[in-house]
Nucleic acid binder design. Structure first.
Length: 565
RNA sequence: UGGCCCGUGGUGUAAUCGGUAACACACCGGAUUUUGGUUCCGGCAUUCUAGGUUCAAGUCCUAGCGGGCCAGCCA
């Protein structure tokens, strides 16, 4: 069946690690890290990175650290570090006691900066942001050196100390590495190492008013933690020479940076900025809105940790920029939930059905299998009575071809119960169908000798007097475009939001066994899909989110029928 | 017109010293089925192009073409 992780051919990162281990590099140690910036919630793209980093550590008997890359106090917050920890843990990974923060290294970083100044590899620059941009040159033209580039060491040391002491306003000065203003890689054109930011940091408070940049922090943090393989996404490829330059110039332990392609999903935006915009503009209810590709959104939607890990395992890891069909994500939850989710009968859009030949005071308990994929799951009893609800979609007065459900004069099986025949369609004064009158074949009861009789369709149902009311939230893709950013010049991704991405059905009926369902419980509603009890659910007011529908062959047939017309 | 990276089916990812394209999802058929679910079987690729090396090239060489990233005191 599905190949266990060890059977899959190793991705290129694993191949590098394996080769390094075989060559006795790093003393055969393998030590990775997952380095989020706490400026937003984790999304499915981070899950790919988490699975890669923790997965490789596990596979090679190594370790993986959790490290917060918190060098920009203006954007970061403790709310995010808490959510990130929760999400990584929920995904099933454990960093044990190795929870680190780049901000823990600020003092060491400061010393290293002084060392670079002393070695004439860094200088305090007085160019403002605009002037610095002008000096940088362009992709095709070299930059111009800062007028302060050759400032004496002592003066640099003094100025840098005064920057730290808070003597200068934001933006007035920077500490820059002295590399090469003519370098074709713009990252090497005397990059900024420190900037002045009079901002309160979520961990260090007001201890600092200068903060190191990502480039001057990341490699050194890896170095301090004795990371062996520093795995990051492709957009940092151009930064690797700088990563290497800092480690070499500082003469410190030097990990290897390896870049892979970040995850893109169809019909989805993934950047934290866009996700944050969706939240603040209230296009969604929050970071954990079930339509969001965030870990918290997927969790609330009903995705399991195993399904997300499985997804990350099947999409692979490579360097080619690519976009995964969101259907792959959906199929990975179906795969997981198919074997684990208890089956239950629920009617989303009720249509009353009366068994006219069934005694009005009779109730029979019908045995129903909890999960045909899992014999251990056992069975339960579902009450049947004279009045039932079936799905509106399961009856058609004028059915198209291949419609195997209920129609006037037609027969159908009620799952785990009787075969019934539709005798009469009751309508209101507007011609709307309000009720179906049916008769049942008493010999066809499930489990009885006469049950072998075959009919084309089987319907799910709920007994009217025993039904539990519920609200069901149906979710669809948030965007209409496969690539939400594929828009004309005068539009942006928000112009193609799906207006029907959330549909609330407030009049659903579910079988009585669901009365005790708790938030987080997952079920398969037979013939419909997988659902998860939402945290908004109350004992008297059940609320369920549809995680994903079942594969729907009938929907496909209808679609092709419509196309033929 | 600069540097770096990447190009295998509809979408992704494989193919470990060059040996005759595999897996997943999607799609199209069929079987089984008291979920139009699950499961099972079958179908679906001249490996960006053009040359070259070789008995043999997705893998090697050359030249094109196409795509991505980079000009934050963001990460």
């Amino acid at each position: 069946m599905n190949a266990p992780e060890s059977d899959r051919s190793p991705n290129f990162v694993e191949q590098i690690v394996r080769a390094d281990q075989a060559a006795e590099k790093w003393d055969r140690r393998v030590h990775t890290r997952f380095p989020p910036e706490p400026n937003g919630y984790l999304h499915i793209g981070h899950a790919k990175s988490i699975c890669l980093n923790f997965g490789i550590a596990a596979k090679f008997q190594g370790l993986c650290n959790l490290r917060f890359d918190d060098t920009n106090p203006a954007k970061e917050d403790n709310e995010y570090v808490e959510s990130i920890k929760e999400d990584v843990r929920w995904l099933g990974f454990d960093w044990q006691e190795r929870e680190f923060y780049a901000s823990d290294y600020f003092e060491q970083l400061y010393e290293w900066a002084r060392q670079l100044i002393t070695d004439r590899h860094a200088f305090v620059c007085e160019l403002g942001p605009d002037a610095m941009r002008e000096h940088r040159g362009t992709l095709t033209e070299p930059g111009l050196p800062s007028p302060n580039r050759d400032r004496p060491v002592e003066e640099n040391l003094d100025l840098f100390a005064r920057m730290r002491a808070g003597e200068f306003p934001d933006g007035s000065r920077t500490l820059r590495a002295k590399i090469d203003m003519g370098h074709p890689n713009l990252n090497l054109r005397d990059p900024v190492m420190y900037r002045i930011l009079h901002q309160t940091h979520h961990r260090t408070g007001d201890q600092w008013c200068i903060y190191p940049t990502y480039d001057f922090t990341h490699g050194q943090s890896d170095s301090i933690e004795r990371i062996t393989h520093s795995i990051c996404t492709l957009e940092f490829e151009n930064h690797r020479p700088l990563y290497d330059w800092y480690c070499q110039s500082l003469k410190i332990y030097h990990p290897q940076q390896i870049e892979f392609a970040r995850l893109n999903l169809t019909y989805t935006v993934m950047s934290k900025r866009r996700l944050r915009d969706l939240v603040t503009a209230q296009h969604v209810s929050g970071w954990d809105d079930p339509r969001m590709p965030t870990i918290s959104g997927l969790r609330r939607r009903g995705y399991t940790p195993a399904s997300i890990r499985r997804f990350c395992d099947t999409i692979g890891v490579a360097k080619a920029t690519s976009t995964i069909d969101v259907g792959v994500l959906e199929s990975s939850v179906r795969e997981d939930l198919n074997s684990t989710a208890p089956r239950v009968m629920a009617v989303q859009r009720p249509l009353k059905l009366v068994l006219v030949d069934y005694p009005s005071d009779q109730v029979e308990m019908m045995a129903a299998v909890n999960n045909p994929e899992d014999p251990q799951a056992g069975s339960r009893e579902v009450p049947l009575s004279r009045e039932l609800y079936i799905e509106q979609d399961d009856f058609r007065e004028d059915p198209p071809g291949k419609f195997f459900r209920l129609k006037p004069g037609g027969e159908v099986r009620l799952r785990y119960a009787y075969i019934i025949r539709c005798e009469q369609v009751i309508k209101d004064e507007h011609g709307e169908i309000v009720e179906l009158h049916c008769t049942h074949d008493p010999d066809s009861r499930s489990g009885m000798p006469g049950a072998g009789r075959r009919v084309k369709g089987t319907l799910h149902w709920v007994s009217v007097p025993h039904a539990v009311s519920a609200e069901v939230r149906l979710y669809d893709r948030l965007f209409l475009r496969e690539d939400p950013d594929d828009v004309s010049a005068d539009e942006n991704y928000l112009d193609h939001l799906n207006p029907d991405s959330l549909q609330i059905l407030s009049d659903c009926r579910v079988e009585p066994s669901l009365a005790q369902a708790q938030p987080g419980d997952r079920f398969q509603f037979e013939r419909l899909g997988y659902y998860c009890v939402d945290r908004d659910s109350q004992p008297q007011r059940l609320v369920l989110n549809r995680t994903v529908s079942l594969r729907d062959r009938w929907a496909k047939i209808q679609k092709s029928q419509n196309q033929r017309k």
